[in-house]
Write a protein that binds this DNA or RNA. Structure first.
Lengths: 185, 185
DNA sequence: CTAAACTTTCAGTAATTTCTGAAACTTCAA
DNA sequence: TTGAAGTTTCAGAAATTACTGAAAGTTTAG
């Protein structure tokens, strides 16, 4: 596994960013390496290229698999396990979004649902509950919407993104186009 | 500052989630407290309610201000500084998105731009550059789009979210509605 | 100017997270 | 079956991040 300067820079950077993206430095580096490498790469090669222990590599790969960003790839005739990205860049980005939603939003949504079931004990609690309820609704909208967007699939999503400010204009026309349907509250 | 059980649960949870949201436990707790509290609250009250040192409180407040989630509120006659949320729930969520984009996407975008300027030294680098270029384009789309969405403002954004699966249908009709404009690629 | 009331800073400590490497485990070929 | 080639696990060490509290700083009233 040859680490050219370009690849090294990219891998290092993804390592730095790793923690901001929800995993740690090593995991970020491993991901970058697997994505940028041409063809499958073995755990040992990864450990060597990144100068990390074999154990750490194994844990990193496990985590990347739990994020569904990387998958195993059996090379015929070879005994070792090789790894490749779990899909194209688009798919990977989607997976990161999805996985983060699960970790960052779902638990809160579930707590909020519970808290909103209780009767407020007094005025202070009633006020707090209102705020929590607003947060709850917002998170639900975000969740529902992000699912919606994922269902659109890459092509349509891309169309939508490229639409840019056209989105605003389109919304103005919405009611004429889809009368009655999905009217806003 | 009375911590009712409801508020305590919520504050504790936001603390736990804090690190996943880009700040630390204390900062998450402080934010929750300020949002849920009715009316302005002083640094000292926060420190007492959360059982954290005054110094830590000060740092947490500073960070929340740098995220533009919390702002100072001068109570006439009072010498102390009080704090309130920097806006409604919607605004706060927007700020979190924006701030995270700055921290999680912008630096990568900037690195990628640089790396893509260099001539690839060989076939391996050329292949890696292609991948990096895909990532770059994706991140640019996301950035552009999120700016677009923010410009729509809360009302329209809400309309769009509530539209749900209607978005798909609308896209199918797009070319008839906005002929020539924003055609894809 | 002084002192009281308050805030911020930051060196050191505590808590948490990540990483290593040796031991345990698995798989397969012979 | 055995052992070579590989993988995983996990206790402890290292690195990082967060927190405390005392000292320094700021602001205002008198």
């Amino acid at each position: 596994m040859k680490m050219t300067p370009l690849i090294t820079s990219a891998v290092m950077h993804f390592g730095e960013m790793g923690s901001r993206w929800g995993f740690n430095r090593t995991v970020g580096q491993i991901l970058a390496l697997i994505v940028l490498n041409e063809g499958p790469i073995s755990a040992q090669e990864i450990a060597d290229a990144l100068n990390i222990s074999r154990g750490n590599t194994s844990m990193g790969l496990k985590e990347l698999q739990s994020w569904r960003l990387v998958k195993q790839h059996l090379v015929p005739g070879e005994r070792k396990e090789f790894f490749i990205p779990a899909g194209d860049i688009w798919t990977l980005a989607n997976r990161v979004f999805e996985e983060r939603r699960k970790r960052e939003i779902d638990p809160t949504l579930s707590l909020l649902r519970d808290l909103l079931l209780d009767e407020p004990a007094n005025g202070t609690e009633a006020g707090a509950q209102n705020k929590l309820s607003e947060i709850h609704d917002l998170l639900e909208s975000i969740t529902a919407w992000s699912e919606e967007l994922q269902n659109l699939g890459p092509e349509k999503l891309n169309t939508l993104m490229k639409l840019g400010s056209g989105v605003g204009r389109m919304l103005d026309l919405k009611d004429k186009i889809l009368p009655g349907k999905n009217s806003v509250n």
